[in-house]
Design a protein around this nucleic acid. Sequence first.
DNA 1: GCGTTCATGTAAATGGTTACATGATTCC
DNA 2: GGAATCATGTAACCATTTACATGAACGC
Lengths: 193, 193
Amino acid sequence: MSLKYALLGLLAERPDSGYALTQRFEQSLQKYAWHANHSQIYPELAKLAADNLATVVEEGARGRRTYAITDAGREALREWLLTSGAGPRRVRNEAVLRTFLLSTLEPDDAAQLLRRYVDRAAQDLAELRAVVADLDAAEEAGEPQRFGRFAAEFGLRQYAAFHDWARWALARVESAAPRQQSREQGREQDLQE
Amino acid sequence: MSLKYALLGLLAERPDSGYALTQRFEQSLQKYAWHANHSQIYPELAKLAADNLATVVEEGARGRRTYAITDAGREALREWLLTSGAGPRRVRNEAVLRTFLLSTLEPDDAAQLLRRYVDRAAQDLAELRAVVADLDAAEEAGEPQRFGRFAAEFGLRQYAAFHDWARWALARVESAAPRQQSREQGREQDLQE
DNA sequence: GCGTTCATGTAAATGGTTACATGATTCC
DNA sequence: GGAATCATGTAACCATTTACATGAACGC
């Protein structure tokens, strides 16, 4: 069900082809909200058109078909947003799963992984800050964008929180096993026979 | 693939039955990391046993079968955690999707929803803080828990970030359309002219 | 004895991924 | 003319959800 509304949401911002929507998915939604690839998107667009929630408004080169949201589509989207918030919050996020399970590792393995996470979060943060700076500059210049800026800010705060958490977790893991983090392996003392 | 490792991870903490694992899924993983229900978990456990990554270590009342992770299972889990971090980070999170799409609504609708989100995040935060306090108290008393504390701290920081984001978004939406929000709640003081 | 919780499963349908397939257009 | 990109689709497979199904044990 969610894919349907994700597409309606993207179309509510502006009309686009399946190809373009696939790209917008990759850019704005994939990392935080929802993922889908083209083989799912094309049939779903056909379904939206069949249900009169979207229509083909243009046929261009290379069989390109541009879809636009209809009034019925906009209403369906609004309805879903305003009413559907109550249910259970189910999440699937493999990266987070990995971080949770990391506490099942030996402290040295866990610390090694956490260091990688901290580094990568820092990188992600730097990239997003650049994106946000661009968006803000564009806004200064007059454009009214909304969707992208919200998403970027969300990502920014999420990554910052993750970065902080990973450093907190690393400190905990290191203080739990403050032995040798000098050599990376060489664990000799753990045969407590 | 992820379900397999999620189960191995839970079993790495302690042996449990399919029934108990279903509950642990609901408590610790569902909200942030991964979701699965019993009809998926039972067959997957059978598969783990067939692959010798887990074994039945006890058969109790009511057909209860307790599974434990094997050495091979522990090694498979470690392998996955240490090597699989590179791929694309795909996320499915309906709640976040809804927050992103909210910027397609009329400002008044969006503001109304955001207020709900702010309130709920505050509630979630309060609940988690209580959980964390309990965990920390148990730790003071000697128990060495690891998994649950990491997850709880993660949730805490995540909800805090979401709460902040929602308030930021609300301020933006309200300043974009500062018309009539006088009724509906009773907030009079926010025209800080 | 009756209701609740414990406990496990299977089947049908839906949702999602990966692989296969095709061809037009653009840029060089 | 050849490579890259644009553009759409289908099919087979795997993952997940929902619904159906059963019965033992426990608390009262």
